[in-house]
Computed example of a mutant assay.
Amino acid sequence: MADDWTEDEYVEYLHGERRSFAWVMQRYGSFTPAEAEAAALKHYPYEASDAPFRGLIFHDLSWHWAMLAIHGGSYWVEHPELVNPSPEYEALD
């Protein structure tokens, strides 16, 4: 995450990643909307502006983190069709 992002930009990006993560959890993980939202909040907690490595989780797409949560550590080997985000995921934002 860029050091020069404002707090509002950070929060907006955080909410976007949570939405995307929750969408993947529902679509590919069969989570209910409530379960998906809870998983997204847990995976993407708010980090204070002075937290070390704030926003480091943003270095990979929420698609990747959700696939890891659903299919585990080498999902790309067992499910090569899921390596790249789906067109529906790409259209979320």
Rank of each mutant, 00 (worst) to 15 (best):
E81K: 04
L56I: 08
Y75H: 01
G16E: 14
R54E: 08
G55D: 11
R19C: 07
A22L: 04
W65M: 04
S74M: 09
G55C: 12
H15L: 07
R19P: 00
P80G: 04
H79C: 00
P33N: 03
F53L: 12
V83S: 09
A39S: 15
S62G: 15
S74N: 09
G72A: 13
M67S: 06
E78W: 11
H43T: 13
R19D: 13
P45N: 04
S62Y: 10
E81Y: 15
E35Q: 12
H79V: 01
W63S: 00
P80N: 00
A34G: 05
E47Y: 08
V11A: 02
S74P: 00
H71N: 09
M67C: 08
R27K: 06
R18Q: 08
Y10F: 15
G72W: 14
R27F: 05
A22K: 04
R19V: 02
P45E: 02
E37F: 11
A38M: 05
R19N: 09
W65C: 03
P33C: 08
W76T: 05
V83H: 10
Y13C: 13
D50T: 14
I70Q: 01
Y75C: 00
Q26F: 03
L56Y: 14
W76Q: 06
G73R: 05
G29Q: 01
E17T: 10
V24E: 01
L61C: 00
R27M: 07
E12T: 14
W23N: 04
W65G: 03
V83I: 15
E47K: 13
Y28D: 13
V11S: 01
W63V: 07
Y75I: 05
V83D: 01
A34L: 09
M25A: 06
L14D: 06
Y28I: 03
Y46L: 13
T32G: 05
S20Y: 10
E78S: 04
A39W: 10
W5F: 11
P80H: 00
E37N: 10
A36D: 12
V24S: 00
P52L: 14
A34D: 12
W23H: 09
F53Y: 15
S62M: 03
S49V: 12
H71Y: 14
H15S: 03
A39I: 12
V24P: 01
E12Y: 09
S62K: 02
F58I: 13
H43P: 00
H79W: 04
A51Y: 11
K42G: 05
